[in-house]
Design a protein around this nucleic acid. Structure first.
Length: 406
RNA sequence: GGGUGGAUUCCCGAGUGGCCAAAGGGGACAGACUGUAAAUCUGUUGGCAUAGCCUUCGGAGGUUCGAAUCCUCCUCCACCCA
């Protein structure tokens, strides 16, 4: 039923950073093969934001890998931990979320995770199930298992402390909660990004204290966002969401800096190592490599055909400077017209391409606005609306203007 | 409980009576160059149909011809000592 241990290890270890410890993992796998019993693989997701992006999808794909190898995937929806807020990697206290908000996020999370995992074969559990039942006394007992000094070993805590940035006590409790999850679900392996290492190790300690065999901690790299600089995150706006349209995904993937391509290839696509090496070879033009990358990313969440279409559309807009396939229609009500004309600045605002007249005015002055491919430079201009008129703002925002029929 | 420092525009952060819609940096946006790259360079970055006017520097009052800046009270935050 299971592949042999070495084969499994090779597949598992692709794109991982730390394995604590590899010996223990090997041992667990051997036993699993021998007894024909799947390992229990845990991944916790805190639904703090409503969307999964290709960065935080990396450990989910890793969980999928285990699942494909025949092991049991356990997805913990941290509906309780999310209200506390994971301090990992953050340089300030995360806001505590309301449970309603968290549950709302949890729903979208689960459906999005379903794009990656086989949810029918996944144990999905909400950790409020056990945390809500805990008494204050239970919490005290849990906290007694960790010292402040150990907590302060954590890099981000040390940094924040030294920099005089506040650390709330609930942030100390977070790793303990995550570790406690591991006891409950009896995990053999826990997955997480590298920023989770400390939390994963706490899980080992707590399991050991509870008389269990400690889980193996396995971390995956954190992915830089499309800006090529900071960690991919929803709040920084440098992310590629797994539910985005193929066109958006493709465009965003094309905008990453070249030096990130190897990492993106390895972590966000299903291409084999040899395919990747060939694409990164000096004989392959970087642009061709990036197109292959962008297609591979789109393919993972959409279809082959979507990927090809996105690539074609992209060329059309940016290489040939032609119009995209579909342009949103914007209808202007006649109340906006003066003598049958509309003020260009107002028009840009009405299309949603600027928030204020001032902003729109600047766009015009800076030469970022054209109508039917004629650059507009005078922000006081009044425009007569003609059929099929195309307004272009910046490089990639288009609208087809029409008068609203009254 | 005692002490100290702080709250400025999207973020960080300068500014301690007029030269302040407020330095500098980051981010973002637009343009140039390109491979829609990245890097770099240029410009913009409170609002207003914009040579002008209006609203902003935690909140409320006050002093002054004039307040981000001085005074009073309030709210919130951090650090240190106990």
């Amino acid at each position: 039923m299971f592949k042999d241990v070495d084969e499994q290890l090779e597949i598992i270890l692709r794109g991982t950073v730390d394995i604590v410890t590899k010996e223990e993992l090997t041992k667990k796998l051997s036993r699993s093969v021998k007894e024909n019993k799947p390992l229990r693989i845990k991944l916790g997701l805190d639904p703090t934001a409503p969307d999964i992006h290709i960065g935080n999808a990396i450990p989910i794909h890793k969980l999928r890998t285990f699942q494909s190898l025949g092991h049991t995937a356990i997805l913990i929806i941290g509906d309780h931990t999310a209200t506390v807020g994971d301090p990992s990697g953050a340089n300030k206290t995360r806001p505590m979320l309301s449970h309603d908000k968290v549950m709302e996020n949890a729903r979208t999370y689960l459906s999005q995770a379903g794009k990656i995992l086989d949810l029918n074969k996944t144990e999905v559990v909400y950790n409020s199930k056990w945390f809500e039942k805990m008494t204050f006394n239970d919490v005290i007992k849990l906290t007694a298992q960790m010292t402040v000094a150990r907590m302060m070993e954590r890099d981000d805590f040390t940094k924040r402390y030294n920099a005089g940035i506040p650390i709330s006590v609930n942030e100390f409790i977070y790793p303990l909660m995550q570790g406690y999850d591991s006891i409950i679900v009896k995990s053999d392996v826990e997955l997480g990004g590298t920023d989770q290492l400390f939390n994963l190790l706490v899980g080992r300690d707590l399991q050991r204290d509870a008389g269990m065999e400690p889980q193996v901690a396995l971390t995956t790299p954190l992915l830089e966002g499309t800006d090529g600089n900071k960690k991919m995150s929803k709040s920084l706006g440098n992310y590629i969401g797994v539910t985005e349209t193929s066109g958006e995904m493709f465009g965003k993937a094309m905008s990453i800096p070249d030096n990130l391509m190897p990492k993106y290839f390895e972590l966000t696509t299903e291409l084999s190592i040899s395919e990747i090496n060939q694409l990164l070879d000096v004989h392959t033009h970087p642009r061709a490599a990036k197109v292959a990358l962008a297609k591979a990313i789109v393919r993972r969440y959409h279809t082959d055909r979507d990927a090809d279409a996105a690539a074609a559309e992209f060329d059309r807009i940016f290489k040939e400077h032609a119009l995209p396939d579909s342009i949103p229609d914007v209808q202007i009500s006649s109340g906006e017209l003066t003598d049958g004309k509309v003020w260009i600045t107002r028009l840009i605002v009405l299309c949603g391409f600027a928030n204020t007249n001032s902003e729109a005015r600047r766009l015009v002055q800076q030469g970022g606005v054209s109508i039917n491919n004629d650059a507009m430079s005078d922000p006081s201009l009044n425009i007569e609306i003609k059929p099929d008129m195309i307004l272009k703002v910046g490089k990639r925002r288009f609208a087809r203007i029409a008068l609203k029929n009254q």
